[in-house]
């Protein structure tokens, strides 16, 4: 295998990982808090389209990201209101977010569909590091959103396992009643983490439209929101494991494209489907009930917290 091919595989896998990891880490936090948001795909699309629209009309990436964060926060608050305050069924609410986000993004994005923004997060080579053979150009000649992801993964691990707030978060999805009796505000915490998760998901969408494919078209995240949900389960609610999973999916998708050139007689769709097939297989092996192994899912996941019922 040539060095350039290797670099291309790694660097594409890393960018691919970034497109799903923001959402996956956000969803890990949200689910650790006990709320399952299955509407990631819809929120990602909203993030992708809002960021791209600002890029097209205002030519300002910072402003684009601010808008993306606001959109994510707004959707997160709506979802929190439904699931935390109104105690609505989380699966149904997630489907509502999905269809709402998909539909609205398509509608809003009509004007920018196929329009070239001529603006995207360009790779920035990090001085010394990018000169390292193979790893340098593949890991350290990336755009800023990827670098930010490099930071977010260790930070999220430290937050979860080394800080007091992280300990409370781990308890929140397990036994909210115990936290309530210890004087913590279960509702406020869940609002915060669900909203955080939604913001991260919207950013994931922006990574797709502003740093990965660099265009907007209807439904262009093509199931990445679902892959993020799968990663959460696959990783057993651990951001670091999710990172390896995301890199694996990224590698599978790019290898698929490379293999395609070797077997031109096989339809390209077969190879594009590879990450999704991998998702299904990975999910079966990681979450299936083999020999009675217990799932690592937070015990109170999808159960609305109702003070009256404790």
């Amino acid at each position: 295998m040539s060095t350039t091919l290797l670099i291309s595989i790694i660097s594409t896998a890393v960018v691919y990982a970034a497109t799903v990891l923001y959402a996956a880490v956000g969803e890990i936090f949200s689910q650790r808090a006990g709320i399952m948001n299955l509407g990631l795909e819809g929120i990602m699309l909203m993030g992708a389209v809002s960021g791209y629209m600002v890029a097209v009309y205002r030519q300002n990436l910072v402003l684009a990201m601010l808008v993306v964060i606001l959109v994510g926060a707004a959707l997160g608050l709506v979802f929190s209101f439904l699931t935390v305050t109104m105690q609505a069924d989380q699966t149904v609410s997630g489907m509502a977010m999905l269809t709402f986000g998909t539909g609205l993004s398509g509608f809003l994005g009509k004007g920018v569909s196929g329009v070239n923004a001529n603006l995207a997060f360009e790779p920035i080579a990090i001085p010394v590091l990018s000169r390292v053979p193979v790893l340098g150009p593949s890991l350290f000649d990336q755009n800023i959103l990827v670098y930010l992801m490099y930071l977010i993964i260790p930070l999220s691990m430290i937050y979860l396992y080394k800080t007091r707030a992280g300990m409370i978060l781990r308890a929140l999805g397990e036994n909210p009643a115990a936290l309530d009796s210890a004087g913590y505000n279960v509702f406020a915490l869940r609002y915060a983490y669900v909203t955080f998760g939604s913001i991260m998901t919207a950013v994931s969408g922006a990574v797709v439209s502003l740093a990965y494919t660099n265009f907007w078209s209807d439904g262009m995240t093509s199931g990445k929101g679902w892959i993020a949900v799968a990663l959460v389960v696959f990783s057993a609610w651990n951001p670091l494991t999710a990172t390896f999973g995301a890199l694996l999916f990224g590698a599978i998708s790019i290898i698929g494209i490379d293999v395609q050139t070797v077997f031109p007689q096989v339809p390209s769709q077969v190879f594009s489907a590879l990450p999704y097939v991998a998702t299904i297989i990975a999910l079966i092996f990681t979450t299936g009930n083999f020999r009675g192994r217990r799932s690592a899912a937070p015990a109170a996941l999808t159960i609305p917290y109702d003070r009256e019922k404790r």
Partner: peptide, 24 residues
């Protein structure tokens, strides 16, 4: 019992008391 099975004994105790430091 109002314990959280996925936390350690120490963490369970510190959910309720102890210094409010940022890091554990």
């Amino acid at each position: 019992f109002r314990l959280i099975p996925t936390l350690t004994v120490a963490e369970n105790v510190y959910l309720y008391s102890g210094k409010k430091s940022f890091f554990l």
